[in-house]
Amino acid sequence: MDTMRRALLGQMTKLTVGAALVPLSSIASAGINDQPPRREGDPAKRYQPPRREGDPAKRYAMLIDLRACIGCQACTVSCHIENEVPLGSFRTIVSQYEVEHEDSGDIATFMLPRLCNHCDSPPCVPVCPVQATFQREDGIVVVDNDVCVGCGYCVQACPYDARFINEHTQTADKCTFCAHRLDVGLLPACVESCVGGARIIGDIRDPNSQISQMIDEHSKELMVLKPEQGTSPHVFYLGMDDRFISRPDAKPALWDVRDPQGEEMGYEFHGH
């Protein structure tokens, strides 16, 4: 294994994670002080169109306690059922990794639930040529699929692969934090179904919310995905390993399952 590169990457992520926590802490404190976090001080200079709809007094975010995630995919399944996501596309999924210590041979698994990060500087929003996708005042990034032309530009712009073209609606689709449920006082399907209680959603402007308290408690350990992209993600990971913050240096396993003719054997979403 390329240890030099590993060490370098490790250093880089630590530095960038530190940078990512700057806006996070400012948001957390802004919540306490009841000051709305605005984009003036953001690391990204990306232009953002004005937010609309949603409750301006709130800023939803999610904290995922990886220590409690067992990779059961209950969130993946309940999200599919709740949001009628086509098979093979995912608004949320738990990436699973097998980590083997090269010397001792010890094996551990690492679970990484992925979903839309509802970034404070979402790269997907300003690229939309018809303003179909927008950020609500409460921070949730949504798509108006009556307006969406299905150009796929937002899918390309998202560094987290959180967006896809829904094959049924032929428009952009993504996690909405189950905004339709939040708006009526319910929890998102993934949060509701998480057996370990690993997903915590809440309003980070409310200092008494569970998420605000956990952010305060763990602020030094929290990490976000790809902080170097300057997106200011609002899905925070607790118990994260910095090797998984960006594209992991891993061997992809399932995609290689093909028969001698090159036909796929073990991965059969196509054609369902």
Binding site: G88, F90, S95, R243, K251, W255
Partner: peptide, 18 residues
């Protein structure tokens, strides 16, 4: 940090531009 990582489960993302 000497470890080998295998990605066991992840979706395959479709092409957005044809």
């Amino acid at each position: 940090m000497n470890s080998m990582v295998i990605e066991v489960l992840t979706p395959r993302y479709a092409m957005a531009w044809y």
